[in-house]
Write a protein that binds this DNA or RNA. Structure first.
Lengths: 222, 222
DNA sequence: TCACTAATCAATAAATAAATTGAATAGTTG
DNA sequence: CAACTATTCAATTTATTTATTGATTAGTGA
């Protein structure tokens, strides 16, 4: 094969994978699937898309081998095809935050709207944990917590938080986390906790980032 | 701003950056610009595109803030807007090699066509260098070598190689490298060297990967 | 086996992207 | 300032992508 032909073919193949990621709906799906497997129905519900549209986007991701499926009863569960998929998503996400002024501003504005100080970084949280200075709460749905969570974190899904405030020590510093930097559960939790007088803050990133960086994690399953 | 609205806007902004990368021509341009600044003319020449087409692709990359420009005399030089751009390109490239069977096969076939054993990894090369077991040659155009190269590598642009064989010690192991895993200069060099009886092989990755991984590099400029 | 359910497919309309051509522009140099 | 040069722009054609609608399929469980 000639040099130019090789290059054309190769870059075309690489672009196929990138194109499959290069759509706002599919980026949101990938971000969601970083938590673990979800059925088409759940994905549609979480993203606000129609079932048919969700299915078509999933076909695109599957054709690009970015996701795989497994059937359980009547449902088909989709999940990311490997760690590289999350790594690429994260590289693109961080590139977006850094290069795209609009994206960076959206994020800052959103954090500011909750009148929060800057979210804590993963390194900060790790330091706080090793000094036993904090209580870490996982505000994602219980199922996602059970699949994997930050070591010693407590599961309090965000919609249960108001009823379970008594479980939270009043003097401790509270760090809430959820799915990722774009997940708003942690913001909602922090807002409520601060209104009740707690010293609360969010982790900037989410569980998949924590795990991917090699920080201590654990799962409820064997 | 409402939760859904925030997410829609945010993923749309992130997708813009990804879409800008998600095109075979623009991926090739980014791969090229990882070597340093190039004029529009040079980029067109290297990629085989028309000037106008090249310019339009560069406008897309510039609008997405993936590249920046600087003027020198009559020429406008384009360069990558930061290390994150290369990181994202690398993540996508490696994702492609791993997930896209066609891309993986193209690459393997291309290496095999030169009847080479497996290319050496960056870690392998680093070990060989520290044991002083190898002669490392940089077969890119001289200008790219001067901007930055693997420490102690010798510059022998691939088209000069045939005339400069006498400079290469016959008993040493030779490792040639160029721009990246898709750059074929190193393959051409290895093919020629092996035909002449040398023990030669290529580095799988290229100089930008080497530098990005923090391995020892140096530049001819101050 | 038959009804049921989750998911996919097919067809369409609307929107967006790519390459080509030729004209226009902004700087530079004599 | 005028000629020149590298690059960009504008207009066009062709191709690709997206969301919607409604029909269809594959598998489950009574």
């Amino acid at each position: 094969m000639e040099k130019r032909e090789f290059k054309n073919k190769m870059y075309t193949e690489l672009a196929k994978v990138t194109k499959a990621m290069g759509n706002s709906r599919r980026m949101e799906i990938i971000d969601l699937l970083a938590q673990g497997p979800f059925s088409v129905e759940k994905i549609a519900e979480q993203t606000g898309l129609s079932i048919a549209n969700t299915s078509q986007h999933l076909q695109v991701l599957k054709a690009a081998r970015l996701v795989e499926i497994s059937r359980k009863g009547n449902f088909i569960f989709y999940f990311l095809a490997g760690e590289r998929v999350f790594n690429a998503w994260r590289a693109l996400r961080d590139l977006g935050f850094a290069q795209n002024a609009e994206a960076g501003k959206l994020l800052e504005d959103f954090y500011k709207a909750g009148e929060q100080p800057d979210p804590v970084s993963m390194e900060d949280l790790q330091r706080k944990i090793s000094k036993k200075e904090v209580v870490v709460i996982d505000v994602r749905p219980r199922e996602e917590y059970e699949r994997g969570h930050i070591k010693n974190a407590v599961s309090i899904p965000v919609h249960e938080l108001a009823k379970r405030l008594k479980e939270i020590p009043e003097k401790a510093e509270i760090i809430a986390y959820c799915r990722g930097p774009l997940c708003v559960y942690a913001d909602e939790a922090v807002q409520l906790l601060r209104k009740k007088g707690y010293n609360a803050n969010r982790l900037r990133e989410g569980y998949p980032d924590w795990k991917s960086m090699g920080f201590p994690a654990e799962s409820s399953y064997k």
